[in-house]
Design a protein around this nucleic acid. Sequence first.
DNA 1: GCCAACGTTGGC
DNA 2: GCCAACGTTGGC
Length: 160
Amino acid sequence: MRYWLMKSEPADCAIDDLVALPNHTVGWFGVRNYQARNFMRDLMQVGDLAFFYHSSCPHPGIAGVVRICRKAYPDPTQFDPASRYYDSKSQPEAPRWLQVDVKLVRKTRLLELAELRAAPELANMRVLARGNRLSITPVTLDEWRFITGTMMGLEGHEFQ
DNA sequence: GCCAACGTTGGC
DNA sequence: GCCAACGTTGGC
């Protein structure tokens, strides 16, 4: 059981899009970085929990909690010439890019990036590291508990 | 395998 | 739009 932070551009998929979707489930398409892909391929398991993070937008920050509900499989957008995530070098018989499915656990208040940066308890959080460009980063249990508990007021909440 | 050039990310 | 940081590409 691991914890993650996953960045999504609200223009692609915002937390409210996930709220509105049937089953509140979406494929995490568009990852085009090998390290992030390898996290999904090698370490992510069904049942892992993740913060849903809004990036490249006016108010970047954590907007919700999701659960991994399907293990890594080929990202269909890599084969779609109309997609901004199309990759002409990826072949269907040897897909280069993968996605997992995530299911909304709960929408939370927006925990803005500035607020995360201001917390000494999160000084070593991977996503906050200088120069970090990974769209998927591991979160430690301590960081998870601090954010869901102290920052979100969800002490003792069972994320089923 | 090196590394310069180029591209991308993402906050500001 | 800027730009720091870092990933990727491709010639050698």
